[in-house]
Amino acid sequence: MTPSDTPGSPGDPSGPWSDLERPPLNGAALRRGLVRPGGLWTEIEVVRATGSTNTDLVTRAAAGAPEGTVLIAEEQTSGRGRLDRTWTAPPRSGLFFSVILRPTGVPVERWGWLPLLAGVAAAGALSRTGGVDTALKWPNDLLVTVAGEERKFGGILAERSGDAVVIGVGLNVSLHADELPVPTAGSLALADAISTDRDPLLRAVLRSLEQWYGEWRRFEGDPGASGLQEAYAAGCATLGRRVRAELPGDRELVGEAVAIDGDGRLVLASEGGVQEPVSAGDIVHLRSVPRDE
């Protein structure tokens, strides 16, 4: 057991047992359940707090940390999302972790599929284990329905470090309404999940990620042959919607989201019928588009 995995004293008001509704993760148990010969996961560490698990693993990856390294934080004090946004949540109220992947043998131009792959893996695992419908908002937000409204409860951030890609995942699990970073956010608890026990949820996500990553690598990152492109499209709530893409350079594009192309880009069709792929930017869902229009 590493120092960061030490449970601590139940009587310590600042310790891991201070909130019995949110028990700490057990790093030793996670390692026993997930680290195995020939498997993807090689090192699993749980820390009580850090600035950003992604920042930490980008540094470790540059120093040669192996593929399959997993860093989980009970609390992130400087959590980051896409477009330099911050991610905040009370300690032990969610799952905040990063993993190191080294996709040797996969052409670099296909590495952009990794955050989408992580989204597919997480959404599927949480739907099965949490018993709540989840959806993907392009490119890498996770959505649940709370009181009839679509709300973001998770996000994924990918950063390259040499021949490695660090994938960070942040998921709101047990947050109450008064704990949300913004009123429009959500959590598994608010979506009436059948379980908010973080241990089985985390195990399910990591096992699903291992399975999807292995299949994607088996086909040298081909999103079609591996089934990833089809799975992402099937779970993507953005498709079939009228959306506004807020693009770099203060440019906006409004149209119907009609496809995810082979490069993982969102294809928008304007009212004039012109299709344009979007590779980066912020997507705002405007309304659904009936399929027979």
Rank of each mutant, 00 (worst) to 15 (best):
S279V: 07
T6E: 15
S127G: 13
L206I: 06
T88F: 07
T134R: 07
G186Q: 07
G38N: 08
L209Q: 04
R241S: 14
T42C: 10
R198W: 12
T6S: 13
G64R: 01
R128G: 06
P139H: 01
G264H: 01
M1Y: 10
G249I: 05
E252M: 12
E215R: 15
A177V: 13
A147C: 09
I100R: 01
D197A: 15
R60K: 13
L143I: 14
V58K: 12
E220K: 12
S18V: 10
S208D: 11
V289P: 04
P223S: 06
V99F: 04
A204M: 04
A49R: 10
Q76S: 10
L171Y: 12
A245H: 08
W111H: 15
E67C: 07
N172Y: 10
I72V: 15
D163G: 13
G112H: 01
G27S: 07
W17S: 12
V47L: 12
S208K: 02
L239C: 03
V70N: 05
P13N: 06
I260M: 05
A73Y: 02
A234E: 14
E210R: 02
T59I: 12
V243E: 03
A191M: 04
G64L: 02
G33N: 14
R85D: 01
Q275P: 04
E210K: 04
V173F: 01
E271G: 14
S18K: 10
R82M: 09
T69H: 06
S78F: 10
S270T: 15
G264L: 00
A73M: 00
A28I: 08
G38D: 12
L180Q: 07
E179R: 05
S93N: 02
E256M: 09
V165Q: 04
T134V: 14
L286H: 01
T42P: 02
E159F: 06
W17Y: 15
G124K: 05
L202A: 00
V278M: 11
G8W: 00
D178C: 03
S288A: 15
A63P: 07
A245E: 05
V284Y: 07
S270K: 09
V144G: 03
G154W: 05
L201P: 06
A89F: 06
A29R: 11
R242F: 00
Q76I: 06
D282T: 15
G94N: 08
L180Y: 09
R82P: 06
R291K: 11
L180K: 05
A234C: 03
F219A: 08
G168A: 05
F96V: 00
R291Y: 11
T104V: 13
Y232I: 03
A280C: 11
E45A: 13
E276H: 11
A257C: 07
P181D: 07
L268N: 08
L239S: 04
L30F: 12
G105M: 04
S4C: 11
F153V: 08
G155D: 03
G51K: 00
G214E: 10
V58Y: 06
G27H: 06
G51W: 00
R251K: 14
S226I: 01
D19K: 02
L34N: 04
G170C: 06
